[in-house]
Design a binder for these strands. Structure first.
Lengths: 225, 225
DNA sequence: TTTGACAACTTGTTAAGACAAGCATACAAG
DNA sequence: CTTGTATGCTTGTCTTAACAAGTTGTCAAA
């Protein structure tokens, strides 16, 4: 026997059984989809009651993942200016200090230096170190345009899956101040990051310096525990 | 027919079927467990090959979650010194600027000010704003000792589930420099955070200021996409 | 030697169903 | 009016089963 429309007054989503019937799939499949939405923070679920949609879910620039797609998802227009592309023989000291796995020695890296912009305003100075063995024959033209992650996928079939990062405060030195259009000594956020594939191959080492005035790194809907 | 020991030479984990047999559960259940380990970044999986354990997995102080448990998991000893406990009638300006949902007006909050220490060294200055309606009758003694999240759970049955945060650079002012034992004007990281329950009830607003010398916020094994 | 078909494994996905446990309503007993 | 109970819903957990798709080694054919 039906007990009135009470549930429908409270529930944003149909029940798992209703969804299974509607889309002609099994309940296991419905649950897989709902669990994924839950992990992303788009819905929450209550035993004995139902699944509820959250009112909102907006993205932000986290400093992980692709700068290009993150800024786009946030509704702004990303752009990059390549400052330099050179071969170097070691990583910055901070990389060795902060990150769990110390990088191997006697390697050569391509060092890609870019200024990251949101709506044409420079917000970050970024040095990306790419192992020369991982990207044989890498050319400046390969990374000059568009998303680096897209290039990794297209040319080398590499897919970024995990990031380890350390965040610390700093002050802008002469070069960084000039690139970001801020004063020397202005406070900045320094992020050290290692991006790896699903199989733990290191894809890039990154040193990123974010300006602070009018821009902030955000982490939205971060699951605790 | 068996085809030699090739797989066992490469695989760290038994296959799903082997695990199901060993623990007398169905393969679906085994997969649920393995998928969870994968999401946590403890293993990775390859179709047609097997599941592989990652070499290491160490935690870090992310600035989300419980400071107490995060520092403990990182193998250090956390402590806190309560600087102040007062009633206030509004949140700091930065909270309204950075966070998605602007907090309601005409509220009163308990403002808990603490200095966070790792191995007795002060690393962060933290102001926690707790809605007086959410925590009726909150006493300083309730939060003076131990983990605030533990108190939330024990006394009010509230469970932190999600955090939204914004991170920006800053400089230490006089008060903060004194509390952290650093110089006035030293670079710091300012984190604005809202912690919510699974049902989106706001549990706390936090303004945290981290020193930069010898301490860094870390995010280990952060899943991309 | 090289190539290709095949078998035997792996994980990925889906199905259909059962039972437990929590929630909300309706309803009868007090 | 209050309280307990039954009912029918919900999500949570689990089982057994099947097939798809990718990987690896064997082995016969060229």
């Amino acid at each position: 026997m039906k007990h009135g429309p009470s549930r429908s007054e409270r529930t944003a989503l149909p029940s798992e059984n209703e969804l299974a019937a509607e889309f002609k799939v099994s309940r296991v499949t419905v649950r897989q989809a709902l669990d994924e939405l839950h992990r992303k923070g788009l819905i929450y679920r209550e035993k004995g009651r139902g699944s509820y949609a959250r009112s909102e879910h907006i993205g932000g620039v986290t400093g992980f993942g692709s700068f290009t797609s993150e800024v786009e998802n946030a509704g702004s227009r990303p752009s990059s200016r390549t400052v330099d592309f050179a071969k170097v023989s070691s990583l910055p000291e901070g990389m060795k200090i902060h990150l769990a796995k110390s990088p191997p020695k006697n390697k050569t890296y391509y060092c890609l230096t870019r200024v990251r912009c949101v709506d044409s305003k420079p917000v970050a100075y970024e040095e990306t170190y790419l192992d020369a063995e991982t990207y044989p024959g890498l050319q400046r033209s390969d990374v000059e345009e568009g998303s680096l992650y897209e290039t990794m996928r297209r040319l080398w079939g590499l897919e970024p899956a995990w990031a380890d990062a350390a965040i610390e405060p700093g002050v802008a030195d002469d070069a960084i101040a000039k690139h970001l259009g801020i004063k020397v000594g202005a406070p900045v956020v320094v992020a050290w990051r290692v991006t790896s594939s699903e199989q733990d191959e290191v894809l890039e080492y990154v040193r990123a310096i974010y300006r602070g005035d009018g821009f902030a790194l955000t982490l939205r809907r971060h699951k605790i525990s």
